[in-house]
Amino acid sequence: MSETVETDVVIIGAGPVGLFAVFELGLFDMKCHLVDILDRPGGQCAELYPEKPIYDIPAYPEISGLDLVERLKEQIEPFDPQFHLARMVTRLEKGEDGWFEVETDAGECLRCKVVVVAAGGGSFQPKRPPIPGIEAYEGTSVFYAVRQMETFRDEDVLVVGGGDSALDWTLNLQPVARSLTLVHRRPEFRAAPDNVNKMYAMHERGVIGFQVGQVAGLKGEGGQLTAATIKTADGTMDLPCTRMLPFFGLTMKLGPVADWGLNLHENTVVVDTERFETSTPGVFAIGDINWYPGKLKLILSGFHEAALMTQAAKRIVHPDERVVFQYTTSSTKLQKKLGVR
């Protein structure tokens, strides 16, 4: 059932530091696979601040998160990294043969000699709105993503939120659901204007409901939702519903990294400052996810850590080869790897 891949290095996290690690490892002939929970590379740069300028990347007085990611992707292209996106690493273990096995929630098994944890603040997961008792309905009536539209067929669906996900699913689930109501705290949306117009048109035709307000409580029994209490400007009201889809964006959680037996310091992974290796030999941690005395959570620190980590990784992946330090400006060998003509 599971697909098995063998490679030199698996990098967990495809943010700027994970991407740059591909470059450093590539210069030393190590092939990389990257796993990320988001559906595109870039990590926080892509998810939290794609448009916002960063001012402390050397040689770039100003660069946006998205541009930085694009440049890094271009820089690592010669090394042909393989991406496993929208995947969460569920298991990390060292087998008896000395290889690591990295398993994803899509059933892939990546076998490698070195693991690099470059997971930033952890994994991005849907925000759970702090509605009292919501946990009791999760997985039965309350869902944070639509995996199968059938789950919502002939149900009374409440979509909550004002972003693209909320609007997209309002439009897509309307034909499937028995009834659908969109709840948002204000009449303005931060979503594609076209979809907002479509939603308002559907509301005018009476095809969907739209309620300005915030969900304050849930009613039901045994995980089966029957109504949501909505706080509006005029007071509270109960909206009957059997399914709820809250879309309140993503938050970073350390997630499965905590379960891999690595020494932790307040939600970060403890490493040494020579190799950036964790308490498990062969598993390295670089970027925002790691901790050592004096640690600064800067992209540029992560780049430095990637370079030093590579020296140690090389000794594990190619134990018989001598590690020769070279400059990309003068080494024809390195330039050949980069495709310089």
Binding site: K127, G162, R190
Partner: peptide, 11 residues
């Protein structure tokens, strides 16, 4: 900021 407040609780 108003857009981001959509993600906050009890606005």
């Amino acid at each position: 900021e108003e857009d981001m407040l959509d993600f906050a609780y009890d606005v």
